[in-house]
């Protein structure tokens, strides 16, 4: 397991645990009580660390290299019954944005999300989860497909931003995102959006207009990354921690400000410590929300969604 700087206090304990497990494998000595004690120690230490995570530490957790990504969630939730669909029918197939029909205990759901890679090669293949316009257009095509066949939509958001490349500009990155915001507002099927990692700006919002917007506990969602914010407002890359504080980008802050609907707790230490548990919690939430939203009429669904976003904003009227 890769440990982040603030998780160092448990490094020695984890090493001891590995050693004990080796001894256990040899099978000569009963180490169960010592193991249990050590596991409790690790848990206590983790609790202590996670109790007061700073916004920047949560940003670090959201980018943890072992954190589960979109396809991991889909694989677990559909028990492998997932058919990926490709292409935007105009330019190409964007590997940073994936989607397709999946089976959730007998019900078909359209899953869409940004996908990151797990090693240098796949990270490049997935363009680090930064979609091009064709990615957003593929997402929209799939959402329209879901709407046509009356299937609910679940999006998994995990992106450092929409790709700011030359060709992305040529092919209208701004238009692609804008179109998605517009069309998603009036989809006549339930739309559930879950931020599972990074929720960076328009790139995240481009698949983020939903009836229910959920953030996992250790994710962030804002108009800009703390690094870029630091570079623009402080004119230096060194103020990312201050920027992370100022942006109020954590799940708790976002919920408090009424900009998302719900926060899902992560397993102790973060989603990557116990992915199966994380997937199970997310699956339960998805099923519950789909059931609730399916009870609304199509008109009510759209009306409520538009009203929800229309009410966002804080201002003074004199």
């Amino acid at each position: 397991m890769i440990l982040l700087d603030f998780e160092k206090p448990i490094e020695d304990l984890l090493k001891q645990l590995t050693k004990l497990e080796e001894v256990e494998k040899e099978g000569n000595i009963d180490v169960s009580s010592a193991k249990a004690e050590l596991e409790k120690k690790i848990n206590d230490k983790r609790k202590e660390i996670t109790k007061n995570l700073t916004p920047w530490q949560r940003v670090q957790l959201s980018r943890h290299p072992e954190r589960p990504y979109t396809l991991d969630y889909i694989k677990y939730i559909t028990k492998g019954k997932f058919i990926e669909l490709h292409g935007d029918r105009t330019v190409k197939d964007d590997k940073a944005m994936i989607g397709g029909f999946g089976d959730v205990d007998g019900k078909t759901v359209m899953f869409i999300g940004q996908q990151k890679g797990t090693n240098t090669k796949t990270r490049q293949y997935r363009n680090f989860g930064m979609a091009n316009p064709e990615g957003y257009r593929k997402a929209l095509r799939l959402m329209k497909l879901a709407e046509k066949f009356d299937k609910p939509i679940v999006t998994f958001i995990d992106t450092p931003g929409a790709y700011p490349g030359l060709e992305a500009e040529e092919r209208g990155q701004g238009e692609a995102i804008a179109r998605n915001l517009f069309e998603m507002s009036k989809l006549k099927v339930p739309v559930i959006c879950i931020i599972i990692g990074e929720g960076a700006s328009g790139g995240a919002l481009g698949i983020g207009v939903g009836d229910v917007v959920i953030m996992l506990e250790n994710t962030w969602y804002s108009v800009i990354s703390p690094e870029s914010c630091s570079s623009i407002l402080w004119r230096s890359w060194d103020y990312k921690i201050d920027a992370a504080n100022a942006l109020k980008l954590t799940s708790a802050d976002m919920k408090k400000n009424g900009l998302i609907d719900c926060v899902i707790k992560e397993p102790l230490g973060g989603a990557h410590v116990n992915p199966e548990k994380m997937f199970a919690t997310v699956k339960t939430a998805i099923k519950k929300r789909i059931k609730e939203l399916s009870e609304l009429s199509k008109e009510e669904l759209v009306k409520k969604r538009i009203e929800k976003f229309a009410n966002m904003g804080e201002f003074i009227e004199e």
Partner: peptide, 8 residues
């Protein structure tokens, strides 16, 4: 921050 994002 996110208030501005949601104006989109």
């Amino acid at each position: 921050a996110a208030y501005s994002l949601m104006q989109m």
